[in-house]
Amino acid sequence: MHAWEQIQKTVDYIEEHLAEEIRIEHLAKLASLSQFYYQRLFSRLVKKPVNEYIRLRRLAKAAEALQNKNKRILDIALDNGFSSHEILTRSFKDAFGMTPENYRANPVRLNNIAKPQQLLNYTLIDEDVPLIADGIILEVTRKKILKPQYFIGLTAEEPVDQMPGGGETGVDTLGQLWDSFHEKKASLSELTANGDELGVASAGTKEGYYRYFAGAEAVTEKTPTSLTSWELSAGEYIVCSFEAEDFEHLIMDAVYKAHKYLFETWLPKHKLNVKPFAAERYASHRPDTTRMEIWVMPEI
């Protein structure tokens, strides 16, 4: 068995036993490694120390459970491996800057660490061949557009280390950007009826930052006052499409795994370089949207 498979076995075990005490000694035994080498390999592959990863996954599950206002916060704490309401509150505030009570009263999207799937780091698929991994279906293909497609929306600039899916916790400011755009969307006559929505990450204007555009397909390249635009130029694109069981898992889990697979596995192993942007394209933010595409343009 490959080393990554041994680590994935323990990642799966952790996910199934978050409510219980999880001992590194037991995880190391599952992986057939000494505790020293297990912790070293885990940190290398998962990018987090074991105990920190466990804490962050417990917080992610607790945040999800807090959306059910009929459940006591104490019960949520105990169900997710925290021994008291107070310990959950302290950990939650350290991670997200608010208490569980504040979050429940004023819910916002949070940056949570997703459960990793090591298979995506080591499996190479051919074009147009689907890959199934941990409930996500991925496929890489090529698409060509014959004329530019225009999108209008809002743009923000954020520190790279706060990029969703990067392993840092906190409020998902990109979710707030999308909320701001959707407040304006119904009043924008320039938008294409039933057109796609587009989120684009590109290089920032200063070191250590990136820009993110959130918008929708437009009938014209003209940009209304107070909004910004993005153009998908004519040409050939590499497109990674993926599906998840619902919209929440699509944008809070699947999209990060698809990005990681495309940029860290598929493109490097095919020796392909792409232009410095990645566009996430999907039908809408409706709960019934379960499919998304990442569009990148190869450098000639």
Score class of each variant (00 low, 15 high):
1 M>T: 15
3 A>N: 01
4 W>Q: 09
7 I>M: 06
8 Q>G: 10
12 D>L: 07
16 E>D: 14
19 A>F: 14
20 E>P: 08
25 E>M: 13
27 L>K: 08
27 L>E: 11
28 A>Q: 06
29 K>D: 12
33 L>C: 09
38 Y>S: 01
40 R>I: 05
50 V>H: 13
51 N>H: 14
53 Y>L: 01
63 A>M: 03
65 A>I: 07
69 K>W: 01
73 I>K: 07
74 L>G: 04
81 G>I: 09
85 H>V: 01
86 E>W: 07
93 K>H: 12
106 N>G: 03
118 Q>G: 09
134 D>W: 03
136 I>V: 15
137 I>A: 08
143 K>C: 03
143 K>D: 01
146 L>Y: 12
150 Y>E: 09
154 L>D: 05
159 P>G: 02
159 P>Q: 02
165 G>A: 06
167 G>W: 05
170 G>H: 03
172 D>W: 04
173 T>Y: 00
173 T>H: 05
179 D>A: 15
183 E>N: 03
184 K>S: 01
191 L>Y: 02
210 Y>P: 00
212 Y>F: 11
212 Y>R: 02
214 A>I: 12
220 T>V: 14
224 P>G: 08
226 S>A: 06
228 T>Y: 04
228 T>C: 03
229 S>E: 02
230 W>P: 00
240 C>H: 09
241 S>F: 09
241 S>D: 10
242 F>R: 12
245 E>N: 13
255 V>T: 15
257 K>W: 01
264 E>P: 00
265 T>G: 03
266 W>E: 11
266 W>Y: 14
268 P>D: 08
276 P>A: 06
277 F>H: 13
283 A>M: 13
290 T>V: 15
294 I>R: 01
298 P>K: 10
300 I>M: 06
